[in-house]
Nucleic acid binder design. Structure first.
Lengths: 157, 157
DNA sequence: CGGCAATCGTTAATATATTAAGGTAGTCTA
DNA sequence: TAGACTACCTTAATATATTAACGATTGCCG
């Protein structure tokens, strides 16, 4: 019985590699009383000025039910506003408050500086390679990927 | 005022790329009533026969307080056993039950088959590149990476 | 016009993530 | 050998992840 599978756990390697990077940014983010998800949202919305929740979900990789809570807390913190669209009462527009914009203006440059430090330590070539390979995985058009057939689940207990 | 930072959000790209992979495995894992973390632990412990909690934490990228709960639930499900070491009463040994080993024996081959499908769709070269670049990020020895100096936090509210 | 399916955000329930603090068992040192 | 120190795991509190289901709106179509 082969205890080891033929393929090493790739999603797990993604996790570890991501943490290897993120651990150098986390202190900056928490220093300003933000969570990682809150910073992702601040940074993303700041780039476009305004976004709808489902757009934030897709870009920031946060599921809808999670986002509801995160945005509520950010609203309580005075970082974002949520306004219903007049044309379509189902949809919502999320914007940053001036307070949040000031926060991004102060935090952003620190993040950039930390990127430069990391780029020197990892080597610019590796960073470049990371961006390229991530893009290849994310935005490559490829046909539908079939699902391995699942056997009926046995009654274990 | 540059709304876009000089560096695209790399950890966020990691998240999206990881999800692009994981979404093809998740159905298999949930089909057997497991969570992603539970499968990571099953797969990892199965490879070595037994592991201590802190080893699982490091390999599976799960923090100690989370692991406590995950292992408790897995113990309730009859998947793992936790036994205190005689020599050092602080330490614990985690082992799989026969039931869990049977589960891995059934689930493992399906995971491998799904890897093969993905490898064909993504191209073997890309998969190879992914493994290589992750290893470069994770296990490259590099000097200590300095932390950008943090300014005193202002009183926002 | 009226029914009906799809969209969008939310609520609910449970599992995990994160940070801080606690508790117990080993280790070290004065 | 007492007391401080450390290592390992756990508990506590809050935030987020995940799946299912709900409620309000809108668009479609008969």
């Amino acid at each position: 019985m082969p205890r080891k599978l033929a393929y090493r756990n790739l999603p797990q390697l993604f996790l570890r590699a991501r943490e290897e990077l993120l651990c150098h940014f986390r202190p900056i983010i928490t220093h300003f009383g933000l969570t990682e998800q809150q910073w992702r949202i601040l940074r993303t919305v700041n780039e476009t000025g305004q976004l709808e929740p489902r757009e934030i979900c897709e870009i920031c990789q946060i599921l809808s039910p999670s986002l509801t809570g995160v945005l509520s807390r950010m609203e309580d913190m005075g970082l974002v506003t949520r306004t219903r669209m007049a044309e379509d009462q189902r949809r919502v527009i999320v914007r940053l408050t001036p307070k949040a914009e000031a926060l991004v203006a102060e935090l952003g440059p620190l993040i950039v500086e930390q990127y430069k430090i990391i780029e020197q330590a990892f080597g610019p070539a590796l960073i470049q390679e990371l961006y390229e390979v991530m893009d290849k995985v994310i935005s490559a058009e490829r046909g539908p990927i079939p699902q391995v057939p699942l056997p009926p689940r046995k009654n274990w207990d």
